[in-house]
Design a protein around this nucleic acid. Structure first.
Lengths: 145, 145
DNA sequence: TTATGACCTTGCCCTTGGGGCAAAGTCAAG
DNA sequence: CTTGACTTTGCCCCAAGGGCAAGGTCATAA
């Protein structure tokens, strides 16, 4: 049997993640504690690599690390996590819709503000009319990346 | 002259911010260091309140605290920050467009994944086909709030 | 053999915009 | 005088790592 083992760096290259991220995932329990060489170097198995790739893919679906961790835990517990995953995906989609609606609204407000302000760019008294006279945009969220 | 002065709590209520946030803004230089009573209580002037309201409004426009700080600094420096603000707004709008495009793409991918997976919810070998067989979504961002 | 460079280890601080909590001082009213 | 509401500072927390430092390890080239 091929007992292929990999260091963090190799695992990182093989999975498209950073070594730091891999250590973080291990720390957070997404990965079982890696084997170690005598010198203390982490050693990852092919299984670990598969898990890492899974994590990476799950991340591109917008799942959070703890959600991914739950999925992996379910799986290690023997049950098929797919129902759970479907629920998570539905949640994410709904959340995306909410976020996008907010962003659309924000953009509309910003554009109006920008347009209204295009010429009367003189500050008179306050700090800046553009901002002060902007229509109050709903709540506060504006999740920057 | 009415020399109205306010404690953090009062300023918070008057501006719709939290006391903690106000202290943070002061700490970050958005506000000049507040006066203090003998006992060390912060005292805010009407000017400060105006600034706080300005900050709040600027935040609803999606500006970051440091950007708002720049605007206020420009203003305190005597120049009208409006040109600067226009630039910031344009940047924000462009950024919003980028973000929304990404989210739209993500949503599309998620929906397809969700749809494809609706029935074959059995995990076979890997962790979860739904995720493993999902089309790779572009990059990674998915800014959660 | 050794020295060099590439790799690994842990650990700490940084990011955003505060929230929450704690210990302790202050103020006004009863 | 005490009670309760308010304030102060300070520290830890969130997500998901990035960056850096100090130090240990490994393999290869001279």
């Amino acid at each position: 049997m091929d007992e292929q083992l990999f260091t963090v760096g190799q695992a990182a290259r093989a999975s498209g993640l950073s070594p730091k991220a891999i250590r973080l995932y291990e720390h957070k329990g997404l990965l079982p504690p890696a084997e170690r060489t005598e010198a203390g170097y982490r050693l990852f198995s092919d299984d670990d690599l598969a898990t890492l790739r899974f994590v990476r893919q799950a991340k591109t679906l917008g799942l959070r690390l703890d959600e991914i961790g739950d999925i992996l835990a379910l799986r290690r517990g023997g049950s098929a996590p797919c129902q759970h995953v479907l629920r998570l995906l539905d949640q994410r989609i709904a959340e995306l819709d909410r976020t996008m609606a907010e962003l659309r609204q924000l953009r509309t407000g910003l554009t109006r503000t920008r347009h209204d302000a295009a010429d009367q760019t003189r500050a008179t008294g306050g700090v800046c009319r553009i901002i002060e006279h902007a229509p109050p945009t709903s709540k506060n969220d504006h999740s920057r990346n």
